[in-house]
Design a protein around this nucleic acid. Sequence first.
DNA 1: GTCAGTGCAAACCCTTTGCAGAAAG
DNA 2: CTTTCTGCAAAGGGTTTGCACTGAC
Lengths: 146, 146
Amino acid sequence: MNLVSNNLVDLAENLRGLGISPTKQRIAIGEVIFSRNQHISAEQILEKVQKADASVSKATVYNTLNLFVEKKIVRELIIDRSKVFYDPNTDFHHHIYNVDTGEIRDISAESLSVTGLPELPSGVQLEGADVVIRVRSKPVESAVSV
Amino acid sequence: MNLVSNNLVDLAENLRGLGISPTKQRIAIGEVIFSRNQHISAEQILEKVQKADASVSKATVYNTLNLFVEKKIVRELIIDRSKVFYDPNTDFHHHIYNVDTGEIRDISAESLSVTGLPELPSGVQLEGADVVIRVRSKPVESAVSV
DNA sequence: GTCAGTGCAAACCCTTTGCAGAAAG
DNA sequence: CTTTCTGCAAAGGGTTTGCACTGAC
């Protein structure tokens, strides 16, 4: 399910359909996340939500994000050592991450494909496959021979 | 460069060759990391090092790991939201991560291949390409329809 | 009225930092 | 001797938790 650009009515309905009671805060958070394709941190979500609807706390943002991830309507991007990013696009796709600027860009699954997924150990279930291409803006001086 | 299973003399020499002065602590840390192929956290490294050589502090472990990563003799695995793992195998390969048990296993680049690496934006240099297959041990009950 | 959801602040945990002392070259 | 490195403890920063309050049904 991909909820990006869903309108508010649909969002509430969709949450309800997943057994998530659509509280004011969850709607506000969902509205921020699903407004467009993006890669956004919890802190950024909190900022944006509070700009639109002051009564959402940090704890609720985290609770809600974890709930959305568990329900698989948001994808968690573990890309940076310091913080998690959240991606409303749950369609299979990959990422290119600039370690210098922090910029994250999508790579479609069509343009970059992963083949040869190994046989999974028994009793184990596939959860996801993440491909992260890391780039840096500038050459590392120390790595360049003089 | 892959330093796994190097002996101590080689390790000191290799560090020196990279402009890393081979202090007692760095050797002790390197000895733990490069003793075998593994995926190990900073905390685990600290434990093991202290078991063998009591005089290494947490700060030095972190400093040394960051130095080794920068010098590209250790690969940093950003796989889990809570902590970074370190991999002495710098040859191109991928990982399968069990989110329930925390187990990390290697997938060779031969068995799983990534094709269609996008053209990088100009002024940007490839730093690495990480593929993580996430699995879980048990089906998520809430995800199973009743 | 009951139970789930929220807000606040404190706790947590991994990682980094500041600085004085120790070691390397 | 000078510079780099280390140890300690404290600070930092993202995330989680405990608990009382609020709101949904």
